[in-house]
Computed example of a mutant assay.
Amino acid sequence: MSYIKGYDPDTLREQVDPRACKERLDEIGEQRSLPALLERVWLLKVLGRLEDALVLSEQSVRVARMAGTRKDLLRARILHASVQAFRGAFAAAEQELTMCADEAEGQGWSAIAAFAYQHRGKARYDAEEFDDARRDFKRALFLRQETGAPDDQLESTLLAIDAADRRRAQVVAS
């Protein structure tokens, strides 16, 4: 089940049903499997419980490092960096996402690289680096098209490109 109902066209944040997210969080409880940890991190993030999300994201990276695959570790690191970006730690998030994107592309894992570029673009967008954000979103779009990503992923990336263009034009006009 997707908890994402859409994306805010100005902030690019996921629009979710908070009640459904809280119910899912309760349902998962204290499960310690990596998929459960990652889902809990995301739910906490979109619910605005950023301190809890940060602590749990750090734990998910440790679990992935010890018991997951390299792909699992990249996904956990990307999610951790996205929490950092939500908290305003843009430089740390950008650095981590750059390393993740580079590693994923080096391994030929285009879908994971696209995920990293999309989140790095969001971090740059939040930091008001609209040209860099747009470049990241374009790279994510290319990789997603190349891998045959689902329409909702393509649409979210196209929305992000449009938002970066709009914000860039506003900055130039002011």
Rank of each mutant, 00 (worst) to 15 (best):
L43P: 01
W42Y: 13
Q95V: 15
F90E: 05
A64S: 03
E96W: 12
D102W: 08
A85H: 02
Q59F: 02
E51D: 15
F115S: 10
G106V: 04
S110A: 04
K71E: 12
S60P: 03
A104T: 03
F86D: 15
Q107R: 09
A76I: 06
E51K: 12
F86I: 05
E58S: 00
A53S: 03
Y117M: 00
L37M: 14
K71M: 09
H119G: 07
F115V: 01
K71S: 14
L74V: 04
R49G: 02
L97Q: 02
A104M: 12
V41Y: 00
I112W: 12
G106Q: 03
V83Q: 05
T98G: 07
R65I: 01
R77N: 08
L73C: 06
E58P: 00
Q84H: 10
A101D: 10
S57Q: 13
G88M: 00
A111E: 06
V61N: 11
D102T: 03
L50K: 11
Q59V: 03
L43N: 09
L37K: 12
M66G: 03
S82E: 15
G106E: 14
R62H: 06
L79S: 09
A111D: 06
E105Y: 13
A53F: 01
V61Q: 13
G48E: 11
D102E: 15
R75A: 03
Q95K: 11
Y117P: 08
A93F: 01
D102I: 00
G48H: 09
G68C: 03
L38H: 07
T98A: 00
V55D: 13
A111G: 02
A101L: 04
S57P: 08
I112Y: 11
H119I: 04
T98V: 08
F90S: 02
V41L: 05
F115Q: 09
A91P: 07
R49M: 09
I78S: 02
Q107E: 12
I78N: 08
F90T: 10
A76V: 03
G68M: 05
A91S: 10
W109S: 13
A111S: 02
F115D: 13
H119Q: 10
I112R: 09
G88Q: 10
E51F: 00
W109M: 13
D72S: 06
A64T: 00
A85T: 07
E105R: 13
E39K: 01
L56P: 03
A85R: 08
A67Y: 05
A101T: 05
E105N: 11
W42F: 04
Y117W: 08
R70L: 15
D72W: 04
A76M: 04
Q107A: 14
M66K: 08
A89M: 14
D52W: 07
